[in-house]
């Protein structure tokens, strides 16, 4: 079993008075695809956004307990959030390309990180686009606006944009919720290929998707983890009744 690269211990999160995550205990291992499922409002996104500290943007957001990435307490002193966010690339539910060209979108993060030189950027962009199987589709129009791409292409662009940062983690928050089955399949395919290089955390409200791609899956409910286990186990013989009910579609 490979080492744990994310470790949450009694981790709690609050938006003002409201507690959104309760006593989260969990480990995510290197190079696994870790699925997170759960009904709306159960805190899945909040957990992801706690990992790259995107919640910090919301006034009144605070945490208790520890949340470690590669052994480092990310809410401890001395954490560089900018660096953290580069290490944990995030893809959102709605693809949000910046209103710029395809090339500039992919190069954006790398540029911000200080990567210079057209040749290096060219290579980085091409490489990232290849990994997301987008290269063939866009190689002849890298300078046209990213907003002209289809939804599925935009989402793969957002994935490519993150790969260009050379992160250690890829976090996806319901990345296929707005996509057609073919685009969804392409993304899932890409994730499987990326698994050898990255640790992937996939939040999904489509339980079948977790069953298809995740190695292990956590079931979140009301800000708590009900159950974490190997995906087969969660879907065939969950140890908690609530997990079973959710998977069978009895609520959520």
């Amino acid at each position: 079993m490979s080492e744990a690269v994310v470790r949450a211990e009694n981790f709690r999160h609050f938006f003002g008075e409201r507690q959104t995550l309760r006593r989260i205990n969990l480990e995510i291992r290197r190079n696994e695809i870790f699925g997170i499922i759960g009904p709306a409002g159960s805190g899945k996104s909040t957990f992801l956004r706690a990992l790259n500290r995107l919640n910090d943007l919301v006034p009144g957001s605070r945490t208790e307990g520890t949340l470690e990435v590669c052994g480092q307490d990310i809410y401890g002193p001395g954490t560089s959030v900018v660096e953290l966010r580069r290490r944990l690339g995030m893809v959102f539910a709605t693809p949000i390309p910046l209103p710029r060209s395809i090339f500039e979108n992919v190069a954006f993060g790398a540029r911000m990180a200080g990567v210079k030189g057209r040749a290096r950027l060219n290579e980085l962009v091409a490489d990232s686009l290849r990994k997301t199987a987008l290269w063939e589709e866009v190689m002849d129009r890298l300078d046209s606006s990213a907003l002209k791409l289809s939804g599925g292409q935009q989402q793969r662009l957002c994935l490519a944009r993150i790969l260009a940062l050379k992160p250690e983690f890829i976090m996806l928050d319901e990345p296929t919720s707005g996509l057609d089955p073919i685009s969804t399949m392409k993304i899932e395919e890409t994730l499987r290929q990326l698994q050898s290089e990255f640790t992937i955390i996939l939040v999904t409200n489509n339980t079948k998707q977790a069953a298809r791609v995740a190695d292990r899956t956590a079931f979140f409910l009301n800000g708590e983890i009900v159950e974490v286990d190997r995906t087969e186990k969660i879907f065939s013989a969950p140890s908690d009744q609530r997990t079973n009910d959710y998977i069978l579609g009895k609520f959520g």
Binding site: L54, V82, R86, I96, L98, M112, L165
Partner: peptide, 20 residues
Amino acid sequence: TYREGSIALGATRWQTTRMV
């Protein structure tokens, strides 16, 4: 979402303001 997308890519606030 533009701001969040940019910040999530590791851009600083000032970079986000200027570039996005």
